[in-house]
Amino acid sequence: MELLKVEGLTVRDEEKGETLAENISFSLSNHECLGIIGESGSGKSVTCRALLGLLQGKLAVTGSAAFGGEELIKMAPQRLREIRAQHISLMMQDAMNAFDPLYTIGAQLAETFREARGMKRREAWEAAAAVVRSVGLAAPGEDPARVLKKYPHQLSGGMLQRCMTGLALALKPEILIADEPTTALDSINQRAIVENIRRLRRETGMAVIFISHDLGVVKYLADRLLVMRRGRIVESGEASEVFEHPQEEYTRYLIESRRRMSGQFRRAVSEGGAHD
């Protein structure tokens, strides 16, 4: 079933006369994961933010984005807020900035549940505790309050990002848009987030738009792939097909660069043999 259909999405900065994203089209089905890769500044974030009405500043958005019969572009802000709370979650790179430094993690998670789900105080606190458990920040039998009562600066970037993932997933959206959620993280935290996303796809059929320049992670998650450059889609297709047989020179360059960089690691790990 088609969940989201984007057609001819274009974002322009009228003041500077620049086009930030041009004629972007793609569709997303139930359960599907669409990976977006491309150099920084190529319009990946702008595209996703445009869908959710989250662009800052004076930018002109044209084109169409249909979500279950409703048009997202130019949708009334109130309805968009509902969509974001109940149907499409956004997860960003910088979890540190997503939390307010003056409130505890628990208070902020609970507040989100009260707003988005209309939960009562106690129920919302329970939901917040479940978030912390679901992303492995409190082992079974361990008191999640230990994490919930902390302020953002008392947790590492990786732990905050895991809280964000847990929250995004607990809201059980139909679509999760993850904008470079693992770029700043060590491999353990990165893996935890990636596996959580996979689990939710399995369990709820959630669809995912996953933006990253970590090609390894994208290859692991994505069914289909968009390659962006300078505001345009330069290549798209089945992820495995694009990774195996890239058609465009730019895609080949991206893939070869990362292969070269990971080569030493790949050899060390595979030659070392006994890796169980």
Partner: peptide, 23 residues
């Protein structure tokens, strides 16, 4: 040594290594 990466023993280094999603 980098070439001995696959032979790390400590549980932290081990899980860091095993968590990498290689491209």
């Amino acid at each position: 040594a980098c070439r001995d990466l696959s032979r790390v023993r400590s549980s932290y280094a081990r899980s860091l290594l095993d968590s990498v999603i290689i491209f």
